[in-house]
């Protein structure tokens, strides 16, 4: 596996490692491995102050008083050339997120099933079948950009975004799927809702990370309210699935 990459300076204290501009799971997993390796092998002591992995880029912020562009690009090149960061590729975390696909929670269920010429059941089965890779987190804490949704149901986003999308909404935008951790304006197609709290300002660290996989599990409305209560009481734990099931 040889990937083309280049370095692009973004500011006095930031650079991008840029790979081929494509949404590709293998390439993206490489970026997450690279991110982990940079934090581990260079890290704060080596002057890295923050990183942002995205679809085909890794943004590296650094402290100019500790390192510089030339030094960092040399270090990163050597890490990539040695392929040593691939060692992190081992375990894949697959996290199960319960979703209630009900028209009350998913006002676009009807539109998406018409788009895909499927029944609701078929649509739900299609959306829950495979685990989705979290390519990146952005937009807001806990908002995971995931893919890829089977083409059949990959309906493009709304022309006019909704002013308010409720927290927990599970949505589709073309081949991407995602969840809204807090109420926000949004143009993605809403097909269901998770009862699980995806952002909590008292414990803002998300329950999943870029590079993890999410698998949706269809639940009833009754279970929705049951899990919601458990979760509010701090007694609900997300299921981590055995990766052997999928890979």
């Amino acid at each position: 596996m040889v990937y083309e990459y280049r370095f692009v300076p973004v500011g006095e204290q930031a650079l991008n490692v840029v790979f081929e501009a494509t949404i590709n799971a293998e390439e993206n997993r490489l970026i997450h491995s690279l991110a982990h390796t940079l934090l581990k092998s260079i890290g704060k002591d080596g002057g890295i102050t923050g990183i942002i992995p995205a679809y085909h880029t890794l943004t590296v912020n650094f402290d100019i008083f500790q390192t510089n562009y030339a030094e960092l690009t040399k270090q990163i090149t050597s890490i990539i050339e040695k392929h040593s960061f691939l060692e992190n590729e081992g375990k894949k975390h697959v996290i199960e997120i319960p979703v209630c696909y009900d028209e009350e929670f998913g006002p676009d269920l009807d539109a998406v099933s018409k788009y895909g010429k499927t029944t609701f059941d078929e649509l739900i089965r299609t959306h829950t079948e495979e685990p989705y890779l979290i390519y990146m987190m952005g937009f807001m804490p806990g908002f995971a950009y995931m893919g890829s949704v089977p083409s059949k149901i990959a309906m493009p986003r709304l022309r006019n975004p909704r002013a308010k999308v409720p927290a927990g909404s599970v949505a589709i935008a073309g081949k991407q799927t995602g969840m809204y951790p807090v109420e926000a304006p949004g143009g993605w197609r809403l097909i269901g809702r998770t009862p699980v709290k995806l952002y909590d300002y008292n414990h803002p660290e998300p329950r999943y990370f870029a590079g993890d996989y999410i698998r949706f599990k269809a639940i009833s409305k009754k279970d929705f309210y049951y899990i919601q209560k458990l979760d509010l009481d701090g007694e609900y734990q997300l299921n981590e699935l055995d990766q052997g099931e999928f890979f």
Partner: peptide, 11 residues
């Protein structure tokens, strides 16, 4: 269209 990327202060 471009793919989303990380942002930095002052972009």
């Amino acid at each position: 269209n471009m793919l989303s990327e990380g942002t930095i202060l002052g972009n």
